[in-house]
């Protein structure tokens, strides 16, 4: 039984085949990376998995059930969370509120209970404090406590990246899709991020799909790698295998 499996998905925009028969399998508890030159379809693949795009054919199996064609919010509820390549936060909210949005799917207090159940012992208050505790745990893991009440719009880039990661973790995902978590970071920040990703895997037991351009990062932390170019798969395998594969080298460095 496979944990997460993508079977031959394809999608095209106009005449461009953005993804062509991509297939791979991810085991539980591994870091699976996707590499490829710019425009090779990595983010498109993530958008297909998280339901933003609808592939034209193929299957995406999560715990043996097909999730392809479902709406993004339903896929999030199944336990697939993601971050975005360019930071996408809720700019008019503070860090705490941004992370609390991630708890949305777990909240059960409706309008009437929120309006009429007041006081500390009510269901609504208990639920709120439970979720706040969960968010505090995530903030501690990601070292975000000091930014708790700051509006996210003005925070440094690296911090915003961590907030986005935290918001995805607040969903308590089983699979986390990280779209270039280290893009635009200094080498120190990159190292921190690598440790964080490994922590997430070890402490929270989340399976990770990673898109990253920094080859050093990818080779260090990935268990397996899928290389794609022009939407078509080149090779899947261990880092050493992918690193030295002639087609991969050709895609990155060009032909002589």
């Amino acid at each position: 039984m496979s944990f997460f499996k993508v079977e031959n998905i394809s999608i095209s925009f106009g005449g461009v085949k953005a993804l062509n028969e991509i297939a791979f399998e991810v085991n539980k508890g591994e870091i699976f990376s996707i590499i490829g030159p710019n425009g090779s379809g990595k983010t498109t693949l993530f958008n297909c998995i998280s339901g933003i795009y609808k592939p034209t054919n193929g299957k995406i199996l999560f715990n043996e059930s097909n999730i392809m064609g479902k709406n993004p919010h339903n896929i999030a509820k199944l336990g697939i969370a993601r971050t975005f390549q360019n930071i996408e936060l809720f700019p008019y909210m503070n860090t705490m509120e941004n992370l609390m949005i991630g708890r949305h799917i777990y909240m059960k207090t409706g309008i009437f209970r929120a309006a009429f159940m007041l006081g500390r012992k009510s269901f609504a208050a208990k639920e709120e404090s439970f979720h706040r505790e969960k968010v505090e745990e995530i903030m501690e893991l990601l070292d975000l406590q000091s930014f708790r009440n700051r509006f996210v719009g003005g925070l440094p880039y690296g911090v915003q990246k961590r907030i986005e990661l935290g918001r995805a973790l607040a969903l308590e995902p089983k699979i986390l899709l990280l779209d270039e978590p280290c893009a635009g970071m200094t080498s120190d920040e990159k190292e921190d991020m690598i440790f964080l990703v490994q922590d997430i895997l070890e402490i929270l037991g989340v399976t990770i799909l990673l898109i990253e351009h920094d080859m050093k990062v990818v080779m260090d932390i990935s268990n397996r790698i899928l290389a794609i170019n022009f939407g078509s798969p080149i090779v899947i395998g261990k880092p050493q295998v992918v690193q030295n594969h002639p087609e991969v080298l050709k895609a990155y460095l060009g032909e002589e």
Partner: peptide, 17 residues
């Protein structure tokens, strides 16, 4: 709050369930 989130960034709101 979900409404506020949708107002600020619809794509992400969907990705958050």
């Amino acid at each position: 709050i979900a409404m506020k989130a949708t107002q600020q960034n619809q794509v992400i709101a969907r990705a958050m369930g």
